[in-house]
Design a protein around this nucleic acid. Structure first.
Length: 839
DNA sequence: TGATCCCGCCAACGT
DNA sequence: ACGTTGGCGGGATCA
């Protein structure tokens, strides 16, 4: 249909190429109807010129309405409608004229994107060669080419298109989407976005209360330092086509930003990401510290651009998260759930699934060769803006290397074999795991020492460090005992030879992943596994979960999803997905360093998850088990099983935790974040112990008094508590912010243990019973403890709760409000009210 | 106002 | 040298 529209003349119009002047050219007549060539410009001066008419036409009838309509339904044919409309318009009078002007909305990128998408099928058959000529599209859509780039770049990030050559792109539609999302999710996990999100939230929280600035900074720093991936564009294995000649720059921020943005959704449990956080994380990679306002602002702008496109793709939708602070713009993932099905590895290349329309599908070999080319030197560098960065990264790498005892084993160095490699990977994994393990142990020691380092590292390291010998037994056999099954293991990085640069990648084969989500699963359990750890998830959720879930979230989510999914055009079953894509590769040559880093990180990661939790707090993770159900064969299964174990009531005392359990727990720890834990002042049964003093006094001073153990305890709790939860003004916090302050306090406190440090870093560790202070902790019983919710489960549940009500396996049966339960325990966790509202 | 984000300058790149 | 890409941020709109 749209085609029909196309204007005949495109050529001349070429529009925009450069700015304005062009418009004049429009020949009014040209547009026989269809596309008016560049309507836009409009010099104010000649409103009535033919051109202007065009404009008007376009803008035509109530734009708003129109836009809405369009949005609602795709609009597709919007254009035509417009045209029709304009007829109507003609009679506009002056004032109306104003109205008629193309409202901004009409020109929105989102709308434009809809139009763009309307031109191509979601699932193009291979046969048709869908290639996109930017110029044509720009003309047809009457927009500057610049705008098309914005769209295409985002689409490219999702591998919905790929660049063939100059001005030319191949349309793949959504065939690759599943793979892409899967790949992005993995990378997101690897990057620990979950934790980062938590960290940011925590920081915000702290800042609110002006808790300790110091700490914040520290956190920030650590955060910044975290290696996470530099930006590299995530490519799909099969998709690398880009013509060697063409593809030059790989990094490209918009593309990369888009991918990262998507990653955030994929790793977040409530799948809701606020722009603010997204911007911070994206910026953060390099340096958080410079809060640089303008930079932040710019980032936000870009995110809007990306969000508009993603919205058009129906992958996300705008919502508002209302917190105490106020309402913040955010987006909710409405795209398909990403199933971490790792295993498919065996598949061959995608070709089956989606053969790239164009010839492009090249056999691996060819690809390799191509890839090689690009990798060539300087270019990469060229664009790379910050040398500094490089340096940094290098250093990091170095560090990492050092620190990391074991580098992941690189398996095949040879390039081509990828294919062959894949299959192997699986097999290899175990072996690798061992290596890692070994390495880890070493690392552990180191790590401890290093704790000071970046938080992330710390996290990572810690786990390993932890003594928890116990783990072994519990853990799945396959996994190495030392390692926490959960976190780490999941990720066993396998290095794959990378065709492209010759660089090898580490691939995560995470056994766990596979099982992980089945679908929408609430995932709680699952998700965390991979990189982030359960904890991360939990923590994250908490905030959001709070209300979001319950409220709008549920309603929306559940129902919607299905719908949406359906909505999307019928998706072809394509998903076969299985292909081996797991390998993400980074194209950038430079990245090698990064790769290294990553490895490290990966390795380390495990640790993170591990954390020790000593004591007993466990938070019940029940769900895990459930989640795992079907799919889970692998390790995960094991994990899951572990998880389900769950709870101990803190109150009760500590329950011995098994290793697995620990893991589950640990995470949360990290993110203490927002903690707004409040004691509910009036909490009902305040737990027995609540010492009024603590609560009341809330003074910091009192807090300080707490023994470190107590602190730990607190922290733990905090961790437990849904991070998300913020207590607004809760009195309690105000007085003494447990969480953050606590951290501070700890420092001061006599015992600074590693743990504490860790905690400070973000990781919360539970005091190890055995070793530590807890016992010493006289205060153990301190009110805080008391405060601990008796029923951990409840808490947990809350955490876990996934938005999609049903999904939540774990969650307690509908308790709508976690709070209540909590109240039982002394600890009152204020749930932040998050409300998600749509536009 | 603050949230959105269009617009298009202009630099990095490619050819 | 010129065309293509696309980073970036002013400032107009919208809500």
């Amino acid at each position: 249909s749209s085609e029909s529209c196309r204007s005949v003349l495109k050529t001349p119009l070429k529009q925009a190429a450069t700015s304005h002047g062009v418009l004049a050219e429009l020949q009014p007549d040209c547009q026989p109807l269809t596309t008016p060539p560049k309507p836009t410009e409009t010099l104010p001066a000649d409103p009535w010129t033919p051109t202007s008419n065009l404009k008007m036409l376009i803008s035509a009838a109530s734009p708003e309405i129109r836009s809405r309509e369009q949005r609602r339904e795709l609009s597709d044919h919007t254009r035509e409608g417009l045209q029709a409309r304009h007829c109507v318009q003609e009679h506009l009078s002056g004032d109306e004229y104003e109205k008629s002007q193309p409202s901004r909305k009409e020109k929105s990128l989102g709308l434009l994107c809809h139009k763009f998408l309307a031109r191509y099928p979601d699932y193009p058959s291979t046969a048709e060669n869908n290639y996109i000529c930017l110029d044509e599209v720009a003309e047809e859509l009457n927009v500057e080419r610049r705008r098309i780039y914005d769209i295409v770049n985002v689409l490219e990030s999702l591998h919905m298109v790929s660049r063939l050559a100059k001005n030319r792109y191949a349309w793949h539609g959504r065939h690759n989407l599943p793979k892409t999302l899967q790949a992005l999710k993995k990378v997101g996990e690897k990057n620990k976005y979950t934790q980062q999100i938590q960290m940011i939230k925590k920081r915000e929280y702290e800042q609110e209360f002006d808790l300790d600035g110091d700490r914040n900074e520290e956190v920030a720093r650590s955060f910044g330092s975290n290696k996470h991936s530099e930006m590299s564009f995530v490519e799909l294995p099969g998709m690398e086509f880009r013509a060697a000649s063409v593809n030059s720059r790989k990094d490209k921020s918009l593309r990369v930003m888009s991918q990262k943005f998507v990653m955030l959704f994929l790793v977040s449990t409530p799948q809701i990401v606020s722009l603010e956080i997204a911007a911070k994380i994206l910026i953060g990679e390099e340096q958080l510290e410079d809060l640089d306002k303008s930079k932040f602002k710019t980032k936000i702008r870009r995110l809007y651009d990306i969000a508009n496109v993603l919205s058009s793709l129906e992958l996300i939708k705008k919502v508002h998260v209302t917190e105490e602070r106020g309402r913040k713009p955010a987006f909710k993932w409405t795209g398909p759930e990403v199933s971490p099905n790792t295993q498919d590895t065996k598949l061959e290349r995608t070709s089956t699934t989606c053969p790239p329309p164009i010839s492009e599908s090249i056999p691996s070999k060819e690809q390799c060769s191509k890839n090689l080319f690009p990798s060539r030197g300087k270019q990469n560098f060229t664009r790379h803006p910050s040398l500094i960065k490089l340096v940094k990264s290098i250093e990091d790498d170095r560090r990492k290397v050092q620190s990391a005892p074991t580098s992941p084993v690189k398996i095949s160095a040879s390039t081509d074999q990828n294919l062959s490699a894949f299959p192997r990977k699986t097999a290899q994994v175990p072996a690798i795991a061992k290596h890692q393990l070994e390495g880890q142990s070493k690392k552990e020691k180191e790590m401890k020492v290093k704790l000071s380092r970046s938080a992330l590292e710390c996290h990572q390291s810690l786990p390993a460090a932890v003594p928890t010998p116990e783990a072994p037994g519990s853990a799945a056999p396959s996994q190495p005992p030392g390692v926490c099954p959960p976190g780490h293991s999941p990720v066993s990085p396998v290095m794959l030879p990378h065709p492209h640069c010759g660089v090898s990648y580490a691939i995560y084969l995470h056994p766990s992943q596979a099982p992980t989500l089945t679908t929408y699963s609430p995932s709680f359990m699952l998700q965390p596994l991979p990189g982030a750890n359960v904890a991360g998830m939990k923590s994250i959720n908490p905030k959001l979960l709070g209300r979001v879930t319950a409220e709008e979230g549920d309603s929306q989510l559940a129902p919607e999803d299905p719908t949406k999914s359906l909505t999307a055009k019928e998706r072809s079953p394509v998903k076969a997905t299985t292909s081996s894509q797991r390998c993400l590769k980074r194209s950038q040559p430079l990245q090698e360093n990064n790769l290294i880093k990553r490895y490290r990180s990966e390795e380390e990661i495990p640790d993170t998850s591990l954390t020790f939790f000593p004591s007993g707090y466990l938070i019940p993770l029940t769900q895990c088990a459930h989640g795992s159900k079907a799919g889970v064969p692998k390790e995960k299964a094991g994990l899951c099983s572990l998880h389900h174990t769950t709870y101990s009531s803190p109150v009760a005392g500590v329950i011995p935790v098994t290793a697995p359990e620990l893991k589950a727990v640990n995470i949360p720890a990290f993110q203490i974040t927002p903690l707004n834990i409040m004691l509910s002042p009036p909490p009902i049964a305040a737990a027995p112990l609540l010492s009024s003093s603590c609560l009341n006094s809330g003074n910091t001073s009192s807090a300080r008094n707490l023994s470190s153990s107590v602190l730990n305890f607190t922290l733990q709790h905090i961790g437990l508590i849904p991070a998300g939860v913020q207590v607004p003004a809760s009195p309690f916090l105000q007085h003494t912010p447990l969480s953050s302050q606590a951290a501070n306090v700890n420092h001061s406190s006599e015992n600074m243990n590693l743990q504490e440090e860790k905690a400070s870093k973000n990781i919360l560790q539970l005091p190890d019973r055995a070793g530590i202070p807890l016992q010493q902790g006289d205060h153990f019983l301190s009110p805080l403890q008391l405060s601990v919710p008796k029923e951990p489960q409840t808490v947990t549940e809350n955490f876990f709760r996934t938005p999609g009500g049903p999904n939540t396996v774990s969650s307690a049966p509908a308790d709508s409000d976690g709070t209540d339960r909590i109240s039982q325990g002394t600890l009152y966790i204020p749930q932040r009210k998050l409300e998600v509202s749509e536009d």
